[in-house]
């Protein structure tokens, strides 16, 4: 059912039957290491290119989610996924290997949440019994595409973020069982642009989009920030998180700082030198499938507003000095 201007409230909210996360060695050395299902020791995974490695990581993550969810391999009815590579090749290659009905998405780093919102709608509407929602990113594929070759000896600015080598996958399914983790509502964001042009400052580019989507979700559903145990943002990083708090406080409805958790700002220790924090499609996917969803199942959290945000730019648009349009999606996760 559509409520307000941008939000769906799912009449039959799908259950998150299982969730899996696979991360690289650097992420596995961070503060959330205990929550991830698989920590790779080799970020090339024995493949001959970084792109194939990312695709293999995504494939393993999807297989793990199906196994944990107790459904036979290959029986998921749809695979919603995306990544940062040109023409989302990591997803396409993983789709080829998995042989599942495929929905390729691109919402930059918001892709995982975009998938959750869409798949939940199709399951609630009775079009699907279950669906896999996933996303992946890899530091080495992102660097060569968006920035510089890995061995270049340059410095990064303090606001630059570190693309996470990570994949997350959740299996959603239609079920009537009580007391389960479910996706109860989803909000489609609008593309927002506050004319940030610095591709090394994604947090600043995306914060207004996140603000717009959270505000839309709250006003559409008639909830307040106080109704949620946590509000989770995707990859604003430490600086972007501060900017978001400032945006809310200036609007007269401040978000309580202790309720706002950013996946990118939680993924690494400062000593690991990620600068402003983690980013990438795999950041919000792995942190929510690892950390957030596990905490919800353990009963620590009952209701979480999960948002993912993406910078809709490309190396071409950066070179042409265009500003960075950004998008954010929100999904309300509840144990009911």
């Amino acid at each position: 059912m559509r409520v307000g201007k941008q939000t769906f409230v799912y009449e039959k909210p799908p259950e998150v039957a299982s969730h899996a996360s696979v991360v690289g060695p650097k992420e596995g050395g961070g503060p959330l290491a205990d929550y991830f299902d698989v920590i790779l020791d080799d970020d090339l995974l024995g493949m001959k290119s970084w792109e194939l490695a990312e695709s293999e990581m995504l494939r393993r993550c999807a297989l793990l989610a199906m196994k944990e969810g107790g459904i036979p391999e290959g029986s998921a009815q749809a695979f919603f996924t995306g990544d940062l590579n040109d023409q989302i090749i990591a997803s396409g290659f993983a789709g080829r290997a998995l042989e599942l009905p495929f929905v390729g998405l691109y919402g930059a780093c918001s892709t995982f949440v975009e998938g959750l919102v869409l798949a939940s709608g199709l399951i609630s509407g009775g079009f699907l019994e279950n669906a896999l929602c996933a996303a992946s990113s890899h530091f080495c594929t992102a660097e060569r595409q968006f920035r510089l070759p890995l061995e270049m000896g340059t410095q990064r600015t303090p606001s630059a973020q570190w693309t996470a080598t990570a994949a997350g996958c959740a299996l959603l399914r239609n079920s009537d069982a009580k007391n389960r983790l479910r996706v109860t509502a989803g909000t489609l964001g609008k593309v927002v642009d506050y004319e940030i042009k610095d591709a090394n400052h994604m947090g600043a580019a995306m914060a207004p989009a996140v603000e717009s989507t959270i505000r839309a979700h709250l006003s559409d559903t008639g909830r307040t920030a106080g109704d949620f145990d946590l509000i989770v943002t995707g990859d604003l990083g430490w600086i972007g998180r501060e900017i978001l708090l400032e945006l809310f406080s200036r609007s007269g409805k401040p978000l309580p700082s202790e309720k706002l958790v950013d996946c990118g700002a939680s993924l690494y220790f400062q000593e690991q030198d990620p600068h402003a924090g983690g980013s990438g499609c795999g950041c919000v996917a792995s942190v929510s499938c690892g950390w957030i969803m596990k905490r919800m199942e353990e009963g620590e959290l009952r209701r979480v507003l999960l948002t993912g945000s993406g910078a809709m730019m490309s190396p071409t648009s950066s070179l042409q000095a265009e500003s960075i349009p950004s998008i954010a999606y929100a999904a309300s996760l509840e144990v009911i």
């Binding site: 303090p158 400052h201 600043a204 600086i239 900017i243």
Partner: peptide, 17 residues
Amino acid sequence: QKVREYAKIVEEKTPKS
């Protein structure tokens, strides 16, 4: 006006090199 105000917030919150 909004864009200008936002640029100010960003500058305030971003650490310098």
